[in-house]
Amino acid sequence: MPDYQAFRVELADKIAHVIIDRPEKANAMNADFWREIIEIFRWVDDTDEVRAVVLSGAGKHFSSGIDLMLLAQAANVLGKDIGRNAEILRRKILELQASFNAVDLCRKPVLAAIHGYCLGGGIDLIAACDMRYSTRDAQFSIKEIDIGMAADVGTLQRLPRLIGDGMMRELAYTGRHFDGEEARSMGLVNRTFDDPQALLDGVFAIARDIAAKSPLAVRGTKEMVRYMRDHRVDDGLEYIATWNAAMLQSADLRVAMAAHMNKQKPEFAD
């Protein structure tokens, strides 16, 4: 596994632990972060041994969001022509969006374990994950409004499906902080834990449960859920019929049914 500048990646028991590893900078998202996250999730997608991903932050915080030095560098390349400036900025924004699209489109379930700060770009990142869990005292904020911009890498597009339109607007317009318990009450996180260690223990237990299931069944389930965000019910039913016409012929189905009948734990191939 290659060395990364902004991350640490570990693989054990079929679970990839992807750790944002800039604790001295509150895990702010620098240029290395945006490039490496695409490489990491491509590796996750291509590595059959990986059944689930836990995403967390090293040190005291999950992430304080985009590194402001990166924004300053983007401003330095602008010239006098508005049209050309707009083209430069648009390409940069699409490039950043691709980093979190890589998380969203990953074939494997991604579980975010959040403690400390989860601000700005941190919200964009966790919105692209399958599930979110946090400590009770974690601090969240859609912070972009406080630096004079609209969030542009996924929060405003993904969050309404998670917490509802009205609450998303309140948080996006005000930028106010809210803690893990409020995040749980609005449905942003599934469950809260007392401290970072209990959080990781709890999230890894869920990841191990997922990793023990048929990887083809998990893959199909994630794909159908993702597909239904942008399609009608009848489109989704047609898609799952076509998908399962192939997948129901997998050995996993026979393995699962035999294990269930014999009250044993099934073992699935990667």
Rank of each mutant, 00 (worst) to 15 (best):
M1G: 15
A6Q: 13
V9C: 05
L11G: 06
K14T: 09
I15D: 06
I15Y: 05
I19Y: 03
K25Y: 06
N27G: 03
F33G: 05
E36K: 01
E39P: 03
E39V: 10
W43Q: 06
R51T: 07
A52R: 12
A52F: 13
V54K: 13
V54D: 12
G59I: 11
G59S: 12
H61G: 00
S64H: 12
V77R: 14
K80R: 14
D81C: 09
I82W: 03
E87L: 15
I93D: 04
S99F: 02
F100Y: 14
K108Y: 11
H115Q: 15
D124V: 07
A127F: 02
A128S: 15
C129G: 00
T135D: 09
R136Y: 05
Q139A: 15
F140W: 08
S141P: 02
I145S: 11
G154L: 06
L156Y: 03
I163S: 00
G166Y: 12
D179F: 07
G180Q: 02
V189T: 03
L200R: 10
V203H: 06
I206Y: 10
A217D: 08
A217P: 07
R219K: 14
Y227K: 01
R232P: 00
D234M: 10
W243S: 02
W243K: 07
L248V: 02
S250G: 04
D252R: 02
L253S: 06
L253A: 01
R254Y: 05
M257G: 03
M257V: 10
A269S: 04
